Simulated scan of single mutants.
Amino acid sequence: MTGTLIALISILVGIIAANGFGYTVKKYSFGIMGNTIVGVFGSVFLIKSFGRLGFDPWSIMNNEDFVGLRLVINIVVSALGGVVGLILAKLLYNKIN
């Protein structure tokens, strides 16, 4: 795996988490397209800020040595970023309207 592939996988996990959460909890849903957009931005934002601690894709592939625990943490944080992004976007949407 390369760092770019890991980054794409973590973005995909954020999209799936946001759409899954929006599907199960209709209160926070923006529809498929809205959930996808919020999932991308929430996932990327949380991964970028959490990646400073050493969980970014290039730290996972440390000198061509694969660290599985960092990958699992990266995927969990990415899913959490999609869900939290969806909740925050809905709260902001309700506050504006």
Rank of each mutant, 00 (worst) to 15 (best):
G81R: 12
T24F: 09
I87A: 09
K95S: 04
G14D: 06
G54K: 15
L88T: 02
L46I: 15
N62S: 07
N35Q: 01
S59V: 02
K48T: 10
A18L: 04
S49E: 09
G34K: 03
I32R: 14
N94S: 00
K90P: 08
G54W: 14
A79H: 10
F45G: 09
N62A: 04
Y93R: 04
S59A: 07
N19G: 00
L86R: 08
V72Y: 11
Y23G: 00
R70H: 08
L91Q: 05
L5I: 14
I60G: 01
G85H: 08
G31M: 11
A79T: 08
E64G: 07
L88D: 01
N35K: 13
G39F: 11
A18C: 10
T36V: 15
S59C: 02
V13E: 03
E64Y: 04
L80G: 14
N97G: 08
A89L: 08
L12K: 04
I37K: 10
N94M: 05
S49W: 12
L80P: 03
G85Q: 00
D56W: 07
E64F: 09
M1N: 08
G34D: 03
I6G: 01
A7G: 03
S10D: 11
G20F: 06
I16S: 08
N35E: 01
L88P: 03
G85P: 10
I9A: 12
V83W: 03
G14F: 09
R70K: 15
L71P: 07
V72L: 13
L92A: 11
I96C: 10
G34T: 06
A18P: 06
V76L: 13
L92D: 00
